[in-house]
Nucleic acid binder design. Structure first.
Lengths: 221, 221
DNA sequence: CATATATGGTATTTCGCGATACCAAGTCAA
DNA sequence: TTGACTTGGTATCGCGAAATACCATATATG
């Protein structure tokens, strides 16, 4: 019946170790695409080959399978959000570079899917929520914090709590846009739109929006 | 058997209209608490009284019930995010007031639950996602945009796209904190912490973080 | 080649829950 | 009071999917 689908890549009777890898990979893809509840074991088996038996033998069931891969997925998928920053280069340059890389990482399809997964199923799987935040937004903000603190020590900027400033910088980058994309109300922004957002954020954080820059002491008149 | 639970408030044989109200109220609570999938009709009936029959007679089923209330819930629950701003008062004052009210609205338990609901089930119920965004974050940013444009017209600030600036202001307010609370990684911030965030955001958006305010031309020495 | 072991595939069981049906009990009108 | 109608409560059905069991088939070992 359904075995008619051309048997594309169904390798047969793999040894346990390989089968486990293939299962984990397929499961990652499906869970990310459809979420935990909407994914059935048949979906996974259909993609990975193998049988229910191997899943239960190696992972104990659906929950076990999910728990076995969720940490690894999260850490891998969020790798683009953990780029280290060169603390020595010009602050403005560094902020631009950081903002661009974070922003494009945020709108990566895999990152979006993982974010939706964490938000939807984080309650049932607390580890997912923890790992997601720690290895994504959390660590992104940490490296920015270090950048800001370096600049502060050089006297270039003033911020009482650089960690708060860093977190707000990332928040400003996310904008309402990230929310809209998560909600599937609009597609992810292309390069051009992202660049506009980055410029706006960096400009604001460096100079503020007051026209009177400070327009300070000298009453020029 | 289970009828032993003290029959607290189970009013019996209500007329259709009243029963419908009670059902909607109970359903709102449960859906917000547990999400769509995790809510069973028995949960709702257990809280509202009445019977399956009334649900199917009036709403056609679980989906119908959800659709019937989701728009109204969203609009009501998000009302605190739609406060109008006085465009005439001092900009700094206005931003402070706006930021505080938005921030405390964001961390309202009901708003948090609704946000989780929209993010988790927005894919299955597109209306939910649309209404959530439009009557919450969307309209909040709109009123801020008008405030900024008024200030821009008075020459107080410069921003090419005040709508983007407004959106980034709200994003900065959300910080990583909102994400952490949504993920249940930490409790909502109290008044004190919120005030610190508000101060930081307003300060940054007005003046930026550079120490050299402009520290401009004069090479003092 | 034959037997043991492990894996693939499918059938069967179990369970939760939405949907439906049915009966009892209460409400309303004449 | 009586009879038609509405609502409450429970029992039943159907479906989807996880969990389990069973048989067939492939690989390994002697």
């Amino acid at each position: 019946m359904k075995t008619s689908l051309s048997e594309s890549k169904k390798k047969k009777n793999l040894p346990a170790a390989q089968r486990q890898e293939v299962l984990l990979k397929a499961a990652s893809e499906v869970f990310l695409e459809k979420g935990y509840a909407a994914t059935s074991l048949d979906d996974i088996i259909g993609r990975a080959g193998g049988s229910r038996r191997s899943i239960y033998a190696q992972f104990g069931g659906k929950e076990g399978l999910f728990n076995a891969l969720v940490t690894k997925i999260a850490s891998q998928a969020l790798a683009p959000m953990r780029q280290e920053i060169d603390k020595e280069t010009d602050l403005r340059e560094a902020l631009f570079a950081y903002a661009e890389s974070i922003l494009s990482a945020l709108f990566t399809p895999t990152v979006l899917d993982l974010s939706r997964l964490a938000l939807a199923d984080g309650a049932r799987f607390p580890d997912l929520a923890k790992v997601y935040f720690a290895s994504g937004p959390g660590s992104a903000v940490e490296s920015l914090t270090r950048l800001l603190e370096a600049a502060k020590n050089r006297g270039e900027i003033q911020c009482l709590r650089c960690d708060i400033t860093a977190s707000q910088f990332v928040g400003a980058l996310r904008d309402n846009l990230y929310l809209q994309v998560l909600l599937r109300l609009r597609p992810a922004p292309e390069q051009e739109e992202r660049a506009a957002l980055v410029t706006s954020v960096v400009e604001i954080f460096l100079h503020g929006i007051l026209t009177a820059r400070p327009k300070p002491q000298p009453m020029v008149m």
